[in-house]
Design a binder for these strands. Sequence first.
DNA 1: TAATGCATGTAACGAGTTACATGATTTG
DNA 2: CAAATCATGTAACTCGTTACATGCATTA
Lengths: 196, 196
Amino acid sequence: MSLPHAILTALLEKPSSGIELTRRFDKSIGYFWSATHQQIYRDLGKLERDGLIRALPTDQPTRGQKKEYEVLPEGRAELARWTAESQDPKALRDPLAVRIRAAAVVGTEGLVADLQRHFDLHQRQLETYQEIERRDFPADTEALDDRLRHLVLRAGIDMETFWTNWLTQVLEELGQEPPGEAPQAPEASSEGDSSA
Amino acid sequence: MSLPHAILTALLEKPSSGIELTRRFDKSIGYFWSATHQQIYRDLGKLERDGLIRALPTDQPTRGQKKEYEVLPEGRAELARWTAESQDPKALRDPLAVRIRAAAVVGTEGLVADLQRHFDLHQRQLETYQEIERRDFPADTEALDDRLRHLVLRAGIDMETFWTNWLTQVLEELGQEPPGEAPQAPEASSEGDSSA
DNA sequence: TAATGCATGTAACGAGTTACATGATTTG
DNA sequence: CAAATCATGTAACTCGTTACATGCATTA
């Protein structure tokens, strides 16, 4: 249910073609709702058929030719309706948690390397978000819409912070250090549990 | 990819029928990977066809009759293989973030009530997890498998803590208090778009 | 025995992913 | 012009969700 509305939001911020939307998803909204170009084209077609957006008039043939879309009043109304609608929070759904639980049963063989990889990826994503925060949200007095966008970014920052902290704990539990500093700790079971 | 392996994990911990698995998912693994009974039956069938599990021998007819499954050696091997396999972290995917961004464009009309509802639900879930932690993980010296399970639960606790904190910030930004107190804030309908 | 509930299962649909196809534009 | 690339689009598949169906057991 979210992708069409994410597209409407992006198109309201700036009318775009499918490929432009795809790129903008890759670098802003997509941090919280990723989408491939196939999904985007599919939903653009559906939004157009439903009369929520329209292609800006051009005489060009369609295939292979850029097609810009803009949001119609019906689209804005639908987005406002959806935004105000009551929705249940989505249940937590985490493959890594499943894996750790599986490892509790079949052993942790081969798990550590991938956990360290995850740690690195989350740390890099955290730095990316912090970079964006520095660049786009410098001052503290902003318009409400920018403050809301900032809060969404903060959610991403807090989420990645959570992951790096949690993975650090898991790796410590498995006798490993998260960064690249510690080489091979030869099977040191960490008994002293530090607070998180 | 995760559900069959979550089922294998649960079956290794204790051989069960479909309905028992469904109930156990509702109260332990399901906190991190929920599943309906239809999904579980579908995947039990597939796991059985693939020779990873088998139904414990019974002379009973099948339909409407409890059918217990146990994991075969091939199933345990597959679970170990999957656990050690390199997997990319799943991208963040959050309808609420999409909604807040949409609200930054079309206005926050009608949003606050549902945010408060989310706050309550997350707070309640947090209490549930903390209850489980108190009940199932009291001491601090445990076997490795229990420490891993504890860490998975900690992930849930930290996640819900994040949500309650973040929603508190969003509600404050909208001039509301999360618990029950709620003074009034000026209306804000912003149309402005800046470079995204 | 009729009604209820329990346990297993089917069917149809929606959303996301991967692979591939086609028409236009650029460039060597 | 040929090759590469860009932009749009199709097709097939997997996974999760919703609604419903069938057979057994219990009990009022």
